[in-house]
Write a protein that binds this DNA or RNA. Structure first.
Lengths: 250, 250
DNA sequence: GAAGCCCTCCCCAGTTCTTGGTATATCGCC
DNA sequence: GGCGATATACCAAGAACTGGGGAGGGCTTC
């Protein structure tokens, strides 16, 4: 039964060419999945000339307003948890993924007041290109349609793939590449080393390290060290395992 | 029928604690999905070169030897296509995702000679943490079990999540927590703002922002901004979604 | 009510980073 | 050979960060 729904949804999406049509299709399928609401987000990394981020949802107006305000503070725990899970997850289990601050709990409580209860979110990440989430929620007090969660997982993924397609984001592989030396300096910077320390480690002059980082910043079109590191990390140019060296001394 | 298989697989995986047991489970499920082979890779370090941290497969010996000896992992078009797709894909459709070079085609041909025909690969990425792929293949001449591909998609994702779990790459999310204000300052710092800019944004004095960041650094026992940000990011206290989020998409 | 945390603000000395230059040498490619 | 990319090295000014102090008010908890 769930699979049939997913297959039907997939064949519907083939025809979808606009964001509005996708929103429509998601709204319909979320009802048939026994959810009350859906929300789909898709963001690109680069701040330059890229298409604007995509947000489709049928949340209650009140919650949407609140959400925009909260969003400015950047504190949606569901979105944060998306960076920690390979598969969809129930919001009730979010603490298995990330720590919740007081503000986080407050936000979830406000959500319940606005008519958003438990939910299920499907995350996807394409290094250097995009990051998307697709959530389905039920009203407070209602239970998630557990027998349908696997179908939900598929449907969310299909929705995200469709969003990626219609967003026009697909043909922008412009991921700035760094030279080996630049990446090396960047890596030591990410490990918390100063330019002077990196110079000693690599056996070159401080000025050279500074120059490498300078050019790397230009490539990414950012003007500070932390943004450079975060962009490289998001793109997969460096990884946490490189930074914290948990395994593979290498 | 397909979903039932996925649910059964999911309940099996709960008990799996070792890589070997996961390989066993994947082998069994791939047969029931009407595939002839499977392969699962997981890389902690996200740069594409070098061998994966985890490799489970039941490919023919011959192909495995070729693959490893020639270090084809870095050149594998299937692996490359994984960076371009949000969902699983059939190898036959790989040209929709990436251009194929002559070497790529040659490699696929060698695979067929070794007993690997068409296949379906499920890619997953966790920003900064891991990159994984789960492939299922049929022998040359055989057709993919198209009615089961959606189930395959789920099963691959479950396998990857399980691999991620047993690989020891996950960290418990109960690290030094920051106060909400500290987190907020940290977040703006991660967005590339200086203390002065953050002060204006939050409507407080520069000194206060500096103080929040100072105490946050002490909590994490690091002495520079970039390490603070990376630690908080890794712990899930902030997320990429927070950092790269656009202002007011409306 | 005292202890503890959080948020706010201030000062200062020293260090580090960022940005703007310039310069040499090597390497591969057309 | 010229061109572009890369790696190396240097200088200087100004902005930003780091680490060391201190201090008051609000809130919760015991």
């Amino acid at each position: 039964m769930g699979l049939k729904l997913a297959e039907e949804f997939a064949s519907n999406l083939v025809k979808v060419e606009t964001e509005a049509a996708l929103g429509e299709a998601l709204g319909q399928v979320s009802r048939r999945l026994e959810f009350d609401h859906f929300a789909l987000t898709l963001q690109a990394r680069t701040s330059t000339d890229g298409p604007p981020d995509l947000l489709l949802h049928d949340y209650p107006d009140e919650w949407a307003r609140v959400y925009i305000n909260f969003e400015l503070a950047g504190r949606d725990p569901v979105q944060r948890a998306c960076d920690k899970s390979l598969t969809g997850f129930e919001w009730d289990h979010i603490e298995r993924l990330i720590p919740l601050t007081r503000g986080d709990r407050q936000m979830l409580a406000v959500g319940r007041e606005c008519g958003i209860g438990d939910g299920y979110t499907i995350p996807r990440h394409l290094p250097g290109e995009a990051r998307g989430t697709c959530s389905f929620a039920v009203r407070p007090g209602a239970n998630l349609p557990r027998p349908l969660l696997m179908a939900t997982e598929i449907i969310g993924a299909l929705g995200l793939a469709c969003a990626h397609r219609v967003s026009g984001l697909v043909r922008k592989p412009s991921r700035p590449a760094l030279s080996d030396r630049q990446r090396e300096c960047l890596l030591w910077a990410a490990r918390g080393k100063t330019a002077a320390e990196t110079a000693i480690i690599l056996g070159i002059s401080i000025e050279t390290v500074i120059q490498h980082l300078k050019l790397a910043r230009e490539r990414y079109d950012v003007h500070c060290r932390q943004s450079l590191i975060l962009n490289a990390l998001f793109d997969g140019l460096i990884g946490f395992s490189d930074i914290f060296r948990r395994r593979r001394p290498d």
